[in-house]
C-alpha cells in the first residue's frame, strides 16, 4: 500500500467507529505508525476532523421546527 492509498483509507477513520475498523483501517494505521511523515499527516487530519465535527455539532435547528413537523403530520391524521 502506498502512502497515498493509506491516506484515502485513513481519511475515513473515525475514532470509536465501526467494529470492522481493524479490517478496514488496520494495515493503513500500522503503516502510519511506521512512517513518521504519514503519521504526522494522520494526526493533523484527525485534528481537523475533530474540529469540524465539534463545530457542526454546535449547529441547532431553528426554533419551532420540531413543533412545525408535529403539527403538519398531526393534520394528516
Amino acid at each position: 500500500m502506498t502512502n497515498e492509498e493509506a491516506k484515502i483509507i485513513l481519511g475515513a477513520y473515525r475514532p470509536g467507529g465501526e467494529g470492522s475498523a481493524e479490517a478496514v483501517f488496520g494495515e493503513a494505521m500500522r503503516q502510519a505508525e511506521r512512517d513518521p511523515q504519514l503519521g504526522a499527516w494522520f494526526a493533523h487530519s484527525q485534528g481537523l476532523d475533530a474540529a469540524m465535527r465539534g463545530k457542526l455539532r454546535e449547529l441547532a435547528p431553528p426554533p419551532g421546527l420540531k413543533e412545525s413537523i408535529l403539527a403538519q403530520v398531526r393534520g394528516l391524521s
Binding site: 481537523l48 474540529a51 463545530k55 454546535e58
Partner: peptide, 13 residues
C-alpha cells in the same frame, strides 16, 4: 486545525 478551531460553527458550515 487551529484555524478551524477558532472559527464559529456558522463559518465552519
Amino acid at each position: 486545525v487551529d484555524r478551524v478551531a477558532r472559527c464559529d460553527a456558522a463559518t465552519a458550515l
